[in-house]
Structure formats: structure tokens, C-alpha cells
Simulated assay, not measured.
Amino acid sequence: MKKLMIALIATAAVAGAAQAQDTGKAYVGAAAATSKNSTLDSNKADGKLFGGYKFNEQLGVEAGWTNHHKTDVGPRGSTEGYGTYVAAKYTVPVNEQVGVYGKVGVSHNERKMTNNLGQRFKNDDTSGYGALGVEYKLNQNTALVAEYERYGKTKDFGARANVWSAGVKYGF
């Protein structure tokens, strides 16, 4: 979580400095995210928050946090966790309203499992991050986004590394 906060502060600082020069555009967004739970082999919807800065129409940087709420896994107990990322983003405009993009960066992920005996297990890793997505501009500042993300390595328990999300972003 500390790494995400540092990344968001750095992004905001860069965005603020660049906006003073009247170049680029900062944005924030929220999305519904879903991934399968490795322990239960079922999908669950969670939330995602992200923010970034576009240096120009193609290049940008983005940081985000995806929550994996507590999930009851029956007689085995429960799992919970989160994933964070910082990534470079490259967008290819298809037309005036639609763009496709890819992101490459680093993610930090944490998963916790508590069994019915009260034992706690924790797994965390810092590894690669990648995403492919599409954006549909509703107007000058607002866009709908949908993407597939990969948060590092395959997980032993809790939410899997593959995440699908759909949401909205607002540019300043």
C-alpha cells in the first residue's frame, strides 16, 4: 500500500507540474473488477481505483489498486487481498471516440487466507504487470474503459492474477 501511495503522489506531482505548462492531462477512475478465486474456483466482483497522467495522446503513466474483498471458501475458511500497480500506458486511437491501449509495469499483490482453525497464511509478491484495454470517449473529459489485466505470478490461494474490469474515467 505504501508503494501505491508513493506512486500516486509522484503521478499527482508530475501532473500538477505539467498542467502548469498547459500540456498533458491527468485522470482518475473507478471500475468493477472480477477474477476467479483459486481456492474456490468462482468469480467475485470487487472494486478498482486508478489514476494517471497522459503526456500526449499516446503515452502516459498509470497507478491503481484493486481490492479482493473477503471471500468465504466454505470449510477451508476465507481469503482476501489486494493488487496494486504502476505502469507505462500506450494508446492507439482507432477513431475520435475509441482507443485501444496496452500497459506494462510492476505490481505488488497480497493474499491472506484464514482457515477454520484460526491459522493465517499470507502470500505477497512484487512482479510484472500487463494489461490490454479499450476506451470509449463519452465526451471531452469522460470515458468508459474495459480491460484485461495480469497482476504478476499465479497465486496459490485467493484471487487469481487474471483480472477483468470495466469502469469510467474522468480527465482534468
Results as ranks from 00 to 15, higher is better:
residue 41 D to W: 06
residue 41 D to N: 15
residue 41 D to K: 11
residue 43 N to G: 14
residue 45 A to V: 15
residue 47 G to K: 02
residue 48 K to F: 03
residue 50 F to L: 02
residue 52 G to C: 01
residue 52 G to P: 03
residue 55 F to Q: 02
residue 55 F to H: 00
residue 56 N to W: 09
residue 56 N to M: 05
residue 57 E to A: 12
residue 58 Q to G: 00
residue 58 Q to W: 01
residue 58 Q to A: 10
residue 59 L to E: 11
residue 59 L to V: 08
residue 62 E to G: 08
residue 62 E to C: 06
residue 63 A to F: 12
residue 63 A to E: 08
residue 64 G to H: 01
residue 65 W to A: 13
residue 67 N to P: 00
residue 68 H to T: 06
residue 68 H to P: 09
residue 69 H to D: 15
residue 69 H to E: 15
residue 72 D to L: 00
residue 73 V to N: 06
residue 75 P to A: 13
residue 79 T to N: 09
residue 81 G to V: 00
residue 83 G to F: 08
residue 84 T to D: 11
residue 85 Y to V: 04
residue 86 V to L: 13
residue 87 A to C: 05
residue 87 A to S: 04
residue 87 A to E: 09
residue 88 A to L: 15
residue 88 A to G: 04
residue 90 Y to L: 05
residue 90 Y to C: 03
residue 93 P to W: 06
residue 94 V to C: 06
residue 94 V to P: 05
residue 95 N to E: 07
residue 96 E to Y: 14
residue 97 Q to E: 09
residue 99 G to Y: 00
residue 99 G to Q: 05
residue 99 G to V: 05
residue 102 G to A: 06
residue 103 K to E: 04
residue 104 V to K: 12
residue 104 V to C: 06
residue 105 G to S: 03
residue 106 V to Q: 15
residue 107 S to R: 02
residue 112 K to L: 04
residue 114 T to Q: 06
residue 115 N to S: 10
residue 116 N to A: 12
residue 117 L to F: 15
residue 119 Q to N: 13
residue 119 Q to K: 10
residue 121 F to Q: 02
residue 123 N to Y: 11
residue 123 N to H: 13
residue 123 N to F: 06
residue 127 S to N: 09
residue 127 S to E: 06
residue 127 S to T: 01
residue 128 G to A: 11
residue 129 Y to G: 10
residue 130 G to Y: 12
residue 131 A to E: 07
residue 132 L to M: 08
residue 132 L to E: 08
residue 133 G to T: 05
